[in-house]
Design a protein around this nucleic acid. Structure first.
Length: 572
RNA sequence: GCGAUAGUAGUCUAGCGGUAGGACAGGAGCUUCCCAAGCUUCUAGCCCGGGUUCGAUUCCCGGCUAUCGCACCA
């Protein structure tokens, strides 16, 4: 029990933050349950996320099914690209990446080979695990998506979504109308996603079912200046650019204004959400000195992405953990869904002034073409659109033959038309948050032990804004009416929506420790003076200092402390 | 998934081929009262399934979970 991870997870289990799922049947790796306090913490963190994205940014939240039909994931690339070709060594039963084995054996183009071809390509190669020649092996696709059937029988394949993002793309036309056909706009979704990880380890870092909070901001591809960029122009935090990484240099403290100006961050939108993410993570309790933003290296970057950064939180156990990804995905997703669905996923951008454009139109005279070309007349007319013209007529190519169509069969018109605007496929900026990883980072980074009266005190130094229990109400004694007063105060706070917990069991010091351990930021103690003066003591978890507050001011004081309008130190 | 190690009250742990003891935590009572005091008392456990055995928590096999290494990590 030396490592923080073990201490935090022990506390999390014991006090009701997180624990393994369905333990009575033996738990399943990659699935966790949030207990009473964990659920509350998670909800508070999600609520802060909503405050940032939904309320402040105006990106409304939508909620789509967690099961999606196959077409969605064919379009997104998850059916193909989200799977690995694997095989099992017949000698040692080790599961192997077939393409890796092939490449290791000098086979070229292994990553694009089909299963059968790969099977034969690797049959003569040795197993990297046991060294024996593989021989007859069966290469199969292992897809990280959970597959299921929709409806009885097996007519229709469905997948549990591997990310929430696709909902914002499949709903794009309706969202566009909701936002009254104007760019930019964004939509968000918070919900469960599923990935059938081969071997989930690392506690709550790699789960098979996890919660994501994703935003998709749709922007004009040529307008990547954020209208509100000034908010973060001077905001600075550590950036580990791909250049820094390649040189082996440490992160650089940098303002977003400088980062965009120097071309380190691709554009203002990406920079804006980097900064917003930094602010958000710090607000929920991630320590700034344990937070950095790392840019994807050129070979990590998806081929379509213009830029991508990960917010990484430092864990004593796991090192730098990717917690949030912020990417400029360009028009890749919308184009992919448009192609698969056949629906246009574009925005009509009206020009300030209609543009006059000269068009050459070729009008076929069907009256002459018809009798002459019979059933080919339509094809000839279509071909005329792309014809080259000479004095003899139009040169077209039809069924592999070059033909000349006499000038009397068509008319070339040069027209000037007014074009009102253009259809544009928006680019998408995607901040994608791993809620469970954020929660782990906060729990680990906020776990602390200090010494009080020669004893180790375990303290969860959670920000008041996310602490599950916000205030503990403790009567010094359960007699002389102190408990009645305490219960009354508890009820009054609860009526105002404050999570107040009454506790009269055991010595006062013990009760403080109990609350410290779960991260309750404040405690109110009712003593004999309360009856005389109508005041109580208000204790601060972190400093263990106390101030006296009038019972009549308690509601507003505690509200201010939780919301951050006041600090405890200003009251001492 | 493979290999190694492990799994005993809520937590940490002792122990054994004859079904278990402690510490802390928790409940009740007394007492005390502003930082885990004390006393009394209670609750609560051998991961699951099979095998060997008169008898298995203990030995064997399988499973699950955890830790570590390997592989995997969109």
């Amino acid at each position: 029990m030396s490592d923080v991870y073990e201490k935090v997870m022990e506390l999390a289990k014991r006090r009701g933050y997180v624990w393994p799922t369905s333990e009575i049947y033996g738990s399943v790796a990659g699935f966790i349950d949030y207990g009473p306090l964990g659920s509350m913490l998670k909800r508070r963190i999600e609520q802060i996320w909503r405050q940032f994205y939904v309320i402040m940014e105006g990106c409304y939240e939508i909620e789509c099914p967690t099961i999606g039909q196959e077409a969605i994931f064919i379009a997104s690339g998850h059916v193909k690209g989200f799977s690995d070709k694997m095989c099992q060594c017949p000698h040692c039963n080790e599961y192997l990446r077939a393409d890796h084995v092939a490449e290791g054996g000098g086979v070229n183009g292994a990553s694009t080979m089909k299963e059968d071809a790969l099977s034969s390509a690797i049959s003569g190669l040795p197993c990297p695990a046991c060294g024996k020649v593989l021989g007859e092996v069966n290469v199969f696709q292992f897809n990280l998506m959970f597959r299921t059937m929709i409806g009885p029988g097996s007519q229709r394949v469905g997948y549990l979504r591997p990310e929430t993002a696709q909902g914002m793309f499949t709903d794009f036309p309706r969202l566009l109308r909701f936002y009254r056909d104007k760019l930019p706009f964004g939509a968000v979704q918070i919900g469960k996603s599923y990935r059938n990880e081969i071997s989930p380890r690392q506690g709550m870092i790699r789960l098979r079912e996890f919660t994501q909070a994703e935003a998709e901001i749709f922007v004009h591809p040529a307008q990547k200046q954020h209208p509100n960029f000034s908010r973060y122009r001077e905001y600075a935090f550590p950036l580990l650019s791909s250049v820094q990484q390649q040189k082996g240099d440490p992160p650089l403290m940098m303002t977003m204004g400088d980062a965009v100006r120097d071309g380190i961050v691709a554009n203002e939108y990406v920079a804006y959400y980097l900064a917003l993410t930094h602010e958000l993570l710090v607000k929920i309790g991630v320590r700034p000195e344990r937070l950095r933003f790392r840019q994807h290296l050129p070979d990590e970057l998806a081929h379509y992405a213009a830029d991508c950064w990960d917010a990484e939180c430092f864990s004593d156990r796991f090192g730098w953990v990717e917690t949030v990804g912020i990417a400029d995905r360009t028009d890749y997703d919308l184009k992919a869904h448009s192609g698969e669905s056949g629906q246009p996923l574009t925005v009509f951008i009206q020009y300030p002034e209609p543009r006059r454009e000269e068009h050459r139109r070729v009008v076929a005279r069907m009256g002459l073409l018809g009798p002459r070309f019979r059933d080919k007349a339509k094809a000839v007319a279509d071909a005329l659109e792309k014809a080259t013209f000479s004095e003899d007529g139009a040169n077209i190519r039809l069924d592999g033959q070059d033909l000349v169509i006499p000038p009397d069969c068509y008319e070339v018109r040069d027209e000037v038309v007014e074009v009102q605007g253009v259809e544009v496929t928006p680019h998408v900026i995607e901040p994608s948050y791993g809620i469970d990883r954020m929660i782990y980072a906060v729990l680990e980074q906020r776990y602390d032990e200090d010494e009080a009266d020669g004893e180790v005190r375990k303290v969860m130094r959670l920000p008041a804004a996310v602490a599950p229990i916000q205030v503990a109400i403790l009567p010094l004694m359960t007699r002389d009416g102190l408990d009645t007063i305490a219960l009354d105060i508890t009820k009054k706070l609860q009526e105002k929506g404050i999570m107040a917990e009454y506790d009269d069991s055991g010595a006062i010091g013990r009760r403080y420790r109990r609350q410290d351990e779960v991260g309750t930021p404040f405690a109110v103690t009712i003593d004999y003076d309360t009856k005389e003066t109508g005041t109580v003591t208000l204790r601060d978890r972190d400093s263990m200092k106390q101030v006296r507050v009038a019972v009549s001011d308690l509601n507003s004081t505690i509200n201010d402390l939780i919301s951050g309008m006041r600090t405890f130190s200003s009251m001492v």
